[in-house]
Design a protein around this nucleic acid. Sequence first.
DNA 1: CCATATACCTGGCAGC
DNA 2: TGCTGCCAGGTATATG
Length: 271
Amino acid sequence: MPELPEVEVTRQSFASRIAGARVLAMHMGKPLRWPLGVASASLLGQTVLRVRRRGKYLLLDMDRGVLLLHLGMSGSLNFAVSQPPAGKHDHMDLVTTLGVLRLHDPRRFGAAVWSAAEDQEPALKLLGKLGMEPLTDGFELKLFQQGLKKRSAPIKQVLLAGDVVVGVGNIYASEALFFSGIRPTVKAHKISAPRVAKLHAAIRQVLSRAVEQGGSSLKDFVNAEGQTGYFQLEASVYGRAGLPCRSCEKPIQHIVQGQRSTFYCPVCQKL
DNA sequence: CCATATACCTGGCAGC
DNA sequence: TGCTGCCAGGTATATG
């Protein structure tokens, strides 16, 4: 379900409400992508200090470690004072003094993983190779240029890989490349400096706008308050194969790169 | 080191 | 109505 904006909107929707909560119980359902890694009982009595985000991971800082949550392709979180009985696709309940944080994830590509510290295993393995955060000052143009210079893979796939910049998923990759006029198939290191600058700005703009709009792109996105119905940001190219480009009217093209769908305008995205 | 393919799992939808 | 095949927001891991 989520690219960076959806994860960030989810974080914002419950971070302040869960802060200070003490864990009363932890229930795990069907297996997720990885096991929790500790007995769920070991979380009892710990306090949720705050909720951060790194890439598409959410980090719940607690007294004796950090609980990493990932929403995979189909996950969503809900935080409420009480929850109805767990349904078929509810695979984690973190019961606290302030409410129950529930992970709903039909495809179970998501995960809840305990780590004693962010710089120890297993957190280190999951977070250690992540690229720059696109919505922070650390996302410097110069560093972005250096990152792309080392890569000969198509730019679309380099963006998705997440080791140069995090958070750009399959939808926003196509969108950002459209706004910067770059063809998704171009090798990353062959993009001119001015184009890289455009892409850098486009990534920030597309992601931050989506965050402002409450997590735009996904049909069935809900934040942790259960609010849906945002969905205001219309895609420029994603999912629009054959439809007229919003800028030049020519039909949007659909191709497959690394087993993922890519959409672009053959006229507006020359190189 | 880098690029690419594979695997994980379920549900929705188009087509017959 | 029901079946089949294809598609879907991610990413660690294996393979070349």
